[in-house]
């Protein structure tokens, strides 16, 4: 079984977010970059488990510049077999999806896995776009994934519940909590990561459909109003009269 896992990089969750250049660019200063957690803990680890159970290969793919190499090596250390980096700045989801789809189309993958969303842009869109561009079935927000023969059984989130369904492979699936448990790379993995093949390819010609023109930070909370535990009626009054939420 051939599995492709889409890996994006994201600022560590505890990063203090700020912007530069008149709020038009993200401030990279002092940011620790990690593999986007959904891509690492769920998509990549589940792909490795499926490979361990069924045989096959796990290839990782990123659309990004040289600044992606460190996280790709980490994904190798966790266990991916080989990787592809499409050398381009990933600013637009359609552009990213198009790069991945263009590469994947000719490679005969049984599964293309991606994360639920990137934790910086929270868009949840690249996976669906890849599926559209490859004309493959798409299951989003999967919490469990099993494969038997050429069919996958998937449990995924639906509004207010979950659904268990099956889909013929190849398919594109976005992964979230429930899929697998995080793995910590061991020494052997880290040593092996250095020599695993990483192919760097130029970007294919593609449209860019959206652009970010400006960023903004949320208004600071004006501070918490404290209410005495002996005067809870006051809280009810404030919620009604001041916050107007009840």
């Amino acid at each position: 079984m051939k599995i492709l896992v889409c890996i994006s990089k994201a600022p560590d969750t505890t990063t203090k977010i700020s912007f530069v250049n008149n709020n038009t660019e993200f401030n990279n200063d002092k940011v620790t970059w990690i593999i986007n957690p959904y891509d690492e803990w769920y998509a990549l680890v589940r792909a490795l488990e499926l490979k361990e159970a069924n045989g096959g290969t796990v290839t990782i793919i990123s659309v990004g510049g040289t600044d992606y190499e460190a996280i790709l090596r980490k994904a190798f250390a966790i266990g991916a077999d080989d990787g592809v980096r499409i050398d381009a700045n990933p600013t637009d989801a359609y552009f990213v999806a198009n790069q991945i789809a263009t590469y994947a189309k000719t490679q005969g993958y049984d599964l293309v896995l991606c994360g639920k969303e990137t934790i910086d842009y929270n868009s949840s869109q690249v996976g669906g776009m890849i599926a559209a561009l490859m004309d493959l079935p798409y299951i989003s927000l999967a919490t469990k994934l099993d494969v038997a023969g050429n069919e996958a059984t998937v449990e995924c989130e639906i509004e207010g519940g979950k659904e268990i369904c099956s889909v013929k492979l190849p398919a594109v699936i976005s992964c979230q909590k429930g899929m697998a448990e995080a793995r910590i790379p061991n020494m052997k993995g880290i040593m092996a990561a250095r020599t695993k093949p990483l192919q760097v390819l130029p970007a294919a010609a593609s449209e860019v459909l959206t652009e970010i023109v400006k960023y903004e930070l949320p208004a600071e909370k004006t501070g918490c109003k404290f209410i005495s535990p002996d005067n809870v009626e006051e809280l009810v009054r404030l919620l009604h009269e001041e916050a107007k939420v009840i």
């Binding site: 600022p11 969750t13 977010i17 912007f19 934790i119 910086d120 842009y121 929270n122 449209e207 860019v208 459909l209 959206t210 652009e211 970010i212 023109v213 400006k214 960023y215 903004e216 930070l217 949320p218």
Partner: peptide
């Protein structure tokens, strides 16, 4: 739109 898990906003221009 909201970005960075609620810690920021971004303004997207759709060009198509």
């Amino acid at each position: 739109k909201g970005t960075h898990s609620g810690k920021a906003f971004a303004y997207y221009n759709i060009k198509t």
